[in-house]
């Protein structure tokens, strides 16, 4: 296989790397964001449940 790309290996392979790395970041970012959003939402719902039932102790909020 022609891995040297004539004298242009540096340019060709750097271009390929830029392409793959940028798109990999672009693929992973929304997946991580979705997970984070789900986690935050779960925490919010848990807080609301706690407020509805004041008997249960809450670790996040202090009720006056």
């Amino acid at each position: 296989m022609n891995l040297a790309m004539g004298a242009y290996g540096f340019y060709v392979w750097t271009a390929v790397a830029v392409f793959l790395i940028v798109l990999l970041i672009d693929t992973l970012a929304p997946l991580a964001r979705r997970r984070r959003n789900l986690r935050e939402l779960r925490a919010r719902i848990a807080r609301q449940e706690n407020r509805r039932r004041p008997g249960t102790p809450s670790s996040h909020e202090s009720h006056p």
Partner: peptide, 11 residues
Amino acid sequence: QGDAYRIIFIH
């Protein structure tokens, strides 16, 4: 352009 033109497939 020899092999340098292969960037076209990404660019």
